[in-house]
Amino acid sequence: MRQRAVLTLPSRAALVASVRDFTAGALRRWRVGTEEQDAAVLIVDELAANAVLHGRAETTLQLDLDGDTLRIALTDFGARAHVADPDVAPDEHGRGMGIVERLADHVEIRPGRNGCRVLAWLRVRQFSGIAGEPNPAA
């Protein structure tokens, strides 16, 4: 059975935690395995932080679970809202996408004129409720 969750928020640093919490809640409801939940939340955190730093006015997160595949899509769109700080040392940037690429099975970046969409796929286990199996919602 396919599951979908969508959240759109202004691209503000203070709202990155809301995006993480939304993701964690959806994955718990869908009974995704704990390790995969942790990986997906970290992916979303990195993508949301990048959207705030480099993105546009709004950010939309879409989570799709289809069987054992979770697709994470984060899109920033609208007028340019933020400009990277030129006084920040170059080694302070660039690690986020490396983390995403390491955790995900596949990543695509689709830049557009009015924003950017990043997609990440990962294989997940779902708990079936069988006796003795840990419950990630507990």
Score class of each variant (00 low, 15 high):
residue 22 F to A: 03
residue 22 F to Q: 10
residue 23 T to S: 13
residue 23 T to C: 08
residue 23 T to D: 03
residue 24 A to K: 08
residue 25 G to K: 07
residue 27 L to N: 05
residue 29 R to L: 14
residue 30 W to I: 10
residue 32 V to Y: 10
residue 35 E to I: 02
residue 36 E to N: 00
residue 37 Q to N: 14
residue 40 A to V: 02
residue 41 V to M: 01
residue 42 L to K: 07
residue 43 I to H: 06
residue 44 V to Q: 09
residue 48 A to M: 05
residue 50 N to Q: 13
residue 51 A to H: 05
residue 54 H to N: 10
residue 54 H to M: 15
residue 54 H to S: 06
residue 55 G to S: 06
residue 56 R to D: 05
residue 64 D to E: 12
residue 66 D to P: 09
residue 69 T to N: 12
residue 70 L to C: 00
residue 70 L to I: 02
residue 72 I to G: 08
residue 76 D to Y: 13
residue 76 D to C: 15
residue 85 D to P: 05
residue 86 P to Y: 03
residue 88 V to I: 15
residue 89 A to T: 06
residue 90 P to V: 13
residue 93 H to R: 10
residue 94 G to C: 06
residue 95 R to S: 02
residue 96 G to A: 13
residue 97 M to Q: 05
residue 98 G to C: 12
residue 100 V to F: 13
residue 103 L to Y: 02
residue 107 V to R: 00
residue 108 E to F: 08
residue 108 E to L: 14
residue 109 I to D: 12
residue 110 R to I: 10
residue 110 R to T: 07
residue 111 P to M: 07
residue 113 R to S: 09
residue 117 R to Y: 00
residue 118 V to Q: 15
residue 118 V to G: 08
residue 121 W to V: 07
residue 122 L to T: 03
residue 124 V to G: 01
residue 124 V to E: 07
residue 126 Q to H: 07
residue 126 Q to K: 10
residue 126 Q to Y: 01
residue 129 G to Y: 02
residue 129 G to I: 02
residue 130 I to L: 08
